[in-house]
Amino acid sequence: MAADPRPQVLAGGTDFMVEVNYDHRRPTAVMSLRRVDELRGWRRHGDRLTVGAGLRYVDMLESEFEVSAPALAQAARTVGSPQIRNTGTIGGNVATASPAGDTLPVLYALDAEVTVSSTRGDRVVPIQELIVGPKRTTLAPDELIVSISIPVSKGPQEFLKIGVRNAMVIAVASVALVVDGDNRHIGCALGSVGPTIIRCSEAEAMAEAEIDWDRLHLPDPRVYETFGAMCAAASSPIDDHRSTSRYRRHGVYVLATRALMRAFEPGA
């Protein structure tokens, strides 16, 4: 592999160093974000949350963060192991753009906006425009992800993931569901069941029309499974060494049904 002379961005290194150790990446210059404290934090202003690209998974588990972004905290809790959560960052997860990146379904469901910076200035990109394929983004080589903006939670949120065991697993399928009670909106997105994260717009619209928004209640219990089936239909999984497409699609059905049940309890 030819050496790339441009400085490469290093955040936590949990994706970067695996590539270096296995000789898939041979850096000749590195820009480490370790000491860039401005990228580390998060802050709330009004009904938006600005999450620094350098925020680590372990930081997302703090209760204050969890209150504002419950699904992101749930996703962070499922990542890797303590060692990985102590190191890996949300910005690295976005830049890696794996269809199995656990924060990504949540960011898609929340219509996250990513602020990207270079010497040419800043740009704000919707997450679904930044990520264009498996491990492919529209980031230019000199561009840095600075922060990610999401709405503060205004209703129930869920992140559910299937893998072969509880710790240290790459998702076989995952579902993020976020409810915005103020705007009577549901966001739902799927991980690991397509080349990129998949948004379930039809299932969202169907459920939005069925919910009694004044009471935050779902009168017709058949809607849970219809929702699950519509999300499964929206997925486009493949067979690979981790799972079959059939199992993945079934997994989406089960997870999406369960997520809606948790958000709008049956019989409530």
Binding site: L10, G13, M17, R34, Q83, N86
Partner: peptide, 17 residues
């Protein structure tokens, strides 16, 4: 003070820690 995998730390970037 944080538990990490040393195989995933770039040694040169650990200067100052």
């Amino acid at each position: 003070g944080r538990l990490v995998c040393s195989c995933l730390e770039l040694a040169a970037a650990a200067e100052g820690t």
